[in-house]
């Protein structure tokens, strides 16, 4: 675990030095510009639209951040050969992959939390309501980004950044299109194996409903753990057989 944490800490430190968290500032600026443009719905409706747009923006910002980190980290370390000094020590390749994922998960978590705080600040100024429910949506977004990061890191064990980003976006699309592609009541092996990230999509109940309960949050956590574990396992296996 010590090796995993050391590698994760390096990923976080690298992200901080590369100023990727400046994305928070960009996001805040976009939000500040967009909110005054919202149409004047009735009381309550405007707040719901605000929540939906805010969470959509958090999702997009987190997606850009996660993919920019996850798609590039392993290929860049292999290409620059910085990985030699890590893997020549008593470090398993799965530890390297898990540490990289954990670091990206941490950075994404900090960023999503910061995005949410900015959103809350704007909500408080605009509507006089901090909208604590937004954290439920942000939690789902963070977990989804974690699972997506595991996929991207796994693909990056064998491919370059362009392939990783393309594959990750395709995977994300497919994972949100299960019902559209397989129908409402799918059967067979495909129904079992087909990935779905719909569990993480709680924007509608958070923006327009009463939010999610603790039981559903646990379901999201279980889906996150299962997907991340499975994808990291596959990625680690691919990286283990790779010649560097």
């Amino acid at each position: 675990m010590r090796n995993v944490l050391a590698i994760a800490a390096a990923v976080v430190a690298d992200a901080v030095r590369r100023k990727v968290l400046y994305l928070v500032g960009v996001f805040a600026a976009i939000l500040s510009v967009m909110v005054p443009q919202l149409p004047s719905y009735g009381v309550g409706v405007a707040a719901a639209v605000f929540r939906e747009i805010s969470l959509a923006l958090v999702f997009v910002a987190a997606l850009v951040l996660t993919l920019s980190l996850a798609a590039n980290r392993v290929p860049a370390e292999v290409e620059r050969r910085t990985v030699y000094s890590v893997l020549s020590k008593r470090v398993h390749r799965w530890q390297y992959m898990a540490g990289t994922w954990l670091g990206i998960l941490a950075v994404a978590g900090v960023a999503v939390a910061a995005f949410t705080l900015v959103t809350q600040g704007v909500a408080l100024v605009r509507y006089g309501d901090p909208m604590w429910r937004l954290w439920q949506g942000s939690f789902g977004i963070w977990l989804e980004m974690g699972a997506l990061a595991a996929f991207a890191i796994g693909v990056s064990a064998l491919a370059g950044p362009v392939v990783v980003v393309t594959a990750s976006l395709a995977f994300l699309f497919a994972a949100h299109s299960r019902q559209a592609l397989l129908g409402r009541d799918p059967h067979g092996v495909l129904a079992l194996l087909y990935p779905s990230f719909d569990t993480f999509n709680v924007i509608t109940p958070v923006a327009h409903g009463t939010g999610i309960g603790a039981a559903y949050a646990l379901t999201m956590l279980a889906a996150f753990a299962a997907w991340s574990g499975l994808l990291l396992l596959a990625g680690s296996a691919a990286f283990t057989i790779r010649d560097l």
Binding site: A6, A13, D14, R18, R81, T82, Y84, S85, V86
Partner: peptide, 24 residues
């Protein structure tokens, strides 16, 4: 192990790099 032409994360200082690898 010293690789041929060793590369490091260039945003680190020398001490930070050694501490990273030292933890490993």
């Amino acid at each position: 192990f010293l690789p041929e032409q060793p590369y490091f994360p260039m945003q680190l200082t020398a001490t930070e790099a050694l501490r990273l690898y030292g933890r490993l």
